[in-house]
Design a protein around this nucleic acid. Sequence first.
DNA 1: TGCTAAACTAACGTTGACGTAAGAATGAAG
DNA 2: CTTCATTCTTACGTCAACGTTAGTTTAGCA
Lengths: 140, 140
Amino acid sequence: MIRIGEVAERTGLTPRTIRYYEEIGLLPGPPERRKGEHRAYDDDDVERLSELTRLRDLLNLSLEELKQLVEAEEARAAIRKQFRESDSDAERLQLLDLALPHVETQIGLVRRRMEELKRLEAELVEKRKSILARKRELAS
Amino acid sequence: MIRIGEVAERTGLTPRTIRYYEEIGLLPGPPERRKGEHRAYDDDDVERLSELTRLRDLLNLSLEELKQLVEAEEARAAIRKQFRESDSDAERLQLLDLALPHVETQIGLVRRRMEELKRLEAELVEKRKSILARKRELAS
DNA sequence: TGCTAAACTAACGTTGACGTAAGAATGAAG
DNA sequence: CTTCATTCTTACGTCAACGTTAGTTTAGCA
């Protein structure tokens, strides 16, 4: 178990930011904790925060939008827990079917973003080509 | 020549936003204009604004960072003007050499961003694969 | 058991990126 | 020349996403 200071160091965030994320419901938040006690985190929490900021930066999501994704993620976490405790295979299959669309959603977001970037890149490369062409023309 | 309202419609921005961009020095801004007179834009300005917002959204740049790129762009515009008025080929070659790095910079930014997205996509696809694998295992 | 770095809560402050309201001025059309 | 939609400037308002005190409290250690 580690404390908020170390989490901050390892994620590149500040303690304030981490508390703020918890405040707005972005983190599952250590619910087992009496007011005033120090928050306790583990490596998974660090991992989670890192992924959140990655999504935020790469997809340009607001914290509110991020929250939507997170709620889906939390549902998945709950599902995983149930999954491990589950006994019948039929039930397990059903849980996996629930987990899948969340991942698909994220993949879709990432791919759309990549498409836009590819278009932009193509246009820039075209621009460069035209400059280089004019250079060759002058050099001849 | 068109006015700010039409520019707003065609770019999807608001007049206020366009004025704001001028205010912080993001736009070359119609310098030829006495205080109180209506701003006059042309198709190039619309194009420019569209590209700016695209860069802002896709690369997640702050207006301040965007300004850096723009200043480079403005330098390029100045260069193009000089280019057309220039007479000696040697001088023209030199101007093209000045224009090139600006485009390269942008290409670099876009590509770095794409790399990060590709990594993220790969991880997500991996996640999905693992879910599907477990499904197949259960179904057997 | 006492010390101190680190964490806690509560509350106000800040910054970027605009929104909005008010009143005056512009400019294309009739 | 009048009309009137649009634009102008000025200035205060707002919202997200934290930053920054201030005054306590906790918890690892000598």
